[in-house]
């Protein structure tokens, strides 16, 4: 089971690696308008360092692998994104010690949000990554706990919520981070950290969707009951690993 969870994590990291490199110039450009013009470059350097450890990560249990992703990001990313992304992932990785399911995915997402807001001291509306993370995590939680949705559908709703959160940062003045020095000059630009958070969530959802698709192909040869089990199991796995960056 842990092998499959870690495999889902590696799939997600490969996708995130490709996406962050594709968006490197865009994120850095966004950051040049509101900050110190390093966000895209810092994240690209960080995720490259993570995927260089692919072979080591493949040997680890999920929680240890996720923790290693966090410590690598702390060491390599620098800036505010290093401690925010890396430190929050490190701290939340403990929630995955029993592997990946809807419950641990949600616990991870909440632990990540808590550590992120504690570390940065930002609240929703401060024009930071919190503006993407908070609605995403709350939506994920409601979808799982109240609406009883399958984790992959819950993640899709969370991604939509993060997307709205990013749009919400555009008209705001920043009160945290380097952008807060710019006052009104930051108004009219989306926040780079909220935007990179959305990109990562989108790749987690794509990973979950891909893996669910593969599972249903495999399960087409099994009987109905087994196929249903398989279809509900795999999205949950891919999903929780998604939530690790939520």
């Amino acid at each position: 089971m842990s092998g499959e969870d870690t495999e889902a994590l590696l799939d997600a990291l490969d996708r995130i690696d490709a996406r962050l490199h594709d968006e490197q110039a865009y994120l850095t450009d966004l950051d040049s308008r509101v900050g110190d013009a390093d966000h895209g470059n810092n994240l690209a350097r960080g995720i490259s360092a993570v995927t260089e450890k692919r072979d080591d990560l493949a040997e680890m249990e999920l929680d240890e692998a996720v923790k290693t992703v966090g410590t690598t990001l702390v060491s390599e990313v620098g800036g505010a994104a290093g401690p925010l992304y890396g430190g929050s992932i490190m701290s939340a990785s403990q929630t995955l010690d029993g592997g990946l399911d809807a419950e641990s995915a949600l616990a991870f997402a909440e632990a990540y949000r808590e550590k992120l807001t504690e570390r940065g001291g930002a609240r929703p509306g401060d024009k930071t990554m919190v503006d993407a993370v908070t609605p995403a995590v709350h939506t994920f939680q409601r979808a799982i706990e109240e609406d009883d949705l399958p984790p992959i559908d819950a993640l899709a709703k969370a991604v939509d919520a993060a997307r709205r959160g990013v749009a919400y940062t555009v008209p705001l003045r920043a009160s945290k981070g380097r952008a807060s020095y710019l006052g009104l000059r930051a108004v009219g630009h989306r926040d780079p950290g909220a935007t990179s958070t959305l990109f990562i969530l989108e790749e987690l959802l794509a990973t979950a969707t891909d893996r669910a698709g593969e599972a249903s192909v495999t399960d087409a040869y099994a009987d109905d009951a087994v196929a249903r089990d398989g279809a509900s199991e795999t999205p949950a796995d891919a999903n929780a690993d998604g939530a690790e960056d939520a």
Binding site: D38, N42, R45, S75, G78, G79, G87
Partner: peptide
Amino acid sequence: GDPDGGIGTDAD
């Protein structure tokens, strides 16, 4: 400075 010797800070 950051890990590459540029402007930034480095937790390690």
